[in-house]
Amino acid sequence: MAKQKIAILTGAGMSAESGIKTFRDADGLWEGHDVKEVATPEGFANNPALVLNFYNQRRRQLHHVQPNSGHKALVALEEKFEVKIITQNVDNLHEKAGSTDVLHLHGELLKVRSTKNEDLILDWEGDLMLGDLDEKGHQLRPHIVWFGELVPMLEPAITYTMKADIIIIIGTSMQVYPAAGLVNYAKPNTPIYFIDPSPSVNTNEFDKLTIIQETAANGVPKLVQELLK
């Protein structure tokens, strides 16, 4: 018998308890920078050294953080279900925990790509500097989807969400694209579980919505235990 499919949509709240700061602080700054400076193509064109340094610091941080109990619990679902994690996070904590099918909507810190050929993507563990070039002599850049850029992995994310038998949303507002948009592709009557300490969701919008008002580290293991019963 075919396994049921679970689509898991994760956002910044998934990794917050591992010590990775959420995308933007309340003042709209990201680690002290205006988002336009460090997360747009224009920012990179204006000051590439600043942008590379910003992502180098984020990349270094990944070597010192570990998956939390929420990340680890999701791995257990693969015993009984076909699981795809669709994450807005650019860290590697899902993979570090052992999840085998992770789709990164917004790119990955541990990859870089050519500024000229966006299909040329390389694994990258250390710092990325001005003068680090692809084989044709073009500067490499972080493999991150910046504001104003297309989200190339959105189509496969939509396709899987449409097939999912269960949807789990963790640590991301259901008001913000792309997670909010993805949920609209769910089949009618698909059970949706929403795990967030401060859930901002209109319960009338979905037929079968269960809200678990907890952090990822606490709420995910509880839900996984229920689903595996």
Rank of each mutant, 00 (worst) to 15 (best):
A39I: 08
A39C: 13
T40A: 05
T40R: 07
P41K: 04
P41R: 06
P41W: 09
P41S: 02
E42G: 06
E42W: 12
G43W: 11
G43N: 04
G43I: 07
F44N: 12
A45I: 09
A45Q: 15
A45P: 03
A45M: 13
P48S: 06
A49H: 05
L50P: 04
V51R: 14
L52E: 08
L52Q: 12
F54K: 06
Y55D: 10
N56L: 03
Q57P: 04
Q57T: 15
R58A: 06
R58T: 03
R59C: 05
R60F: 02
R60S: 07
Q61N: 14
L62C: 08
L62Q: 14
L62S: 07
H63M: 12
H63L: 15
H64Y: 13
H64Q: 13
Q66K: 12
P67I: 12
S69W: 04
G70F: 11
G70L: 10
H71Y: 06
H71C: 02
K72H: 09
K72C: 08
A73C: 01
A73S: 02
A73I: 02
V75I: 13
A76W: 08
L77C: 00
E78I: 03
E79W: 03
E79N: 13
E82S: 10
E82K: 06
V83R: 04
V83C: 02
V83M: 03
V83I: 04
I85N: 05
I85D: 02
I85K: 05
I85Y: 10
I86N: 06
T87M: 02
T87N: 02
T87R: 05
Q88N: 12
Q88T: 08
Q88S: 11
N89H: 09
V90H: 11
V90D: 10
D91P: 00
N92S: 14
L93W: 09
A97L: 04
G98D: 07
G98H: 09
T100L: 13
D101E: 11
D101L: 09
D101K: 15
V102E: 14
V102H: 15
V102P: 08
L103V: 03
L103I: 07
H104Q: 10
H104F: 11
H104D: 05
H104S: 04
L105P: 01
H106T: 09
L109H: 13
L109I: 10
L109Q: 13
L110R: 15
L110E: 14
K111D: 05
K111T: 11
V112A: 11
V112C: 08
V112Q: 08
T115C: 07
T115G: 02
T115D: 04
E118N: 12
E118W: 06
D119R: 09
D119I: 01
D119Q: 10
I121S: 08
L122C: 07
L122K: 07
W124P: 00
E125D: 11
E125T: 05
E125L: 05
D127Q: 06
L128D: 00
L128A: 01
M129N: 15
L130D: 00
G131D: 00
E135M: 08
E135Y: 12
E135I: 12
K136D: 01
G137N: 01
L140R: 06
R141A: 06
R141C: 03
P142T: 11
P142H: 11
